[in-house]
């Protein structure tokens, strides 16, 4: 139970940090924000790696293998696409 309360505290505080930080992002950057935050939601990759590495049963291995593939595609695709978009945002000086 103690562990749970600790994790819950982290969860609630992180939500507040998220609200504070994200509110400051201007509308013109909302698409990169979405694809970038999308990539970060691929953090579930670390759970997938741990699970795939234990190789416990066939079922867990299949599930976690799929999870590694999807999460990694999410991470790599998300960051790369965001980078591609942000590279296009130019100011007047260097068109």
């Amino acid at each position: 139970m103690d562990v749970f309360i600790g994790l819950l505290t982290i969860f609630v505080l992180a939500m507040f940090v998220g609200f504070e930080v994200i509110t400051k992002i201007p509308p013109i950057l909302h698409t990169p924000l979405m694809s970038g935050s999308n990539a970060i939601s691929g953090i579930t990759i670390i759970g997938a790696i741990l699970s795939a590495g234990t190789k416990l049963t066939m079922l867990t291995t299949v599930l976690s293998f799929l999870a590694v593939v999807l999460a990694m595609a999410n991470v790599v695709g998300g960051f790369l696409i965001t980078h591609r978009m942000l590279r296009m945002f130019r100011t007047k000086g260097r068109a």
């Binding site: 969860f11 939500m15 507040f16 998220g18 509110t23 924000l33 935050s37 970060i40 939601s41 953090i43």
Partner: peptide
């Protein structure tokens, strides 16, 4: 996972 997940969750809600 909890921190990164809730950051993204908050971002989407906003």
């Amino acid at each position: 996972l909890i921190i990164a997940g809730s950051l993204v969750g908050a971002s989407g809600i906003i």
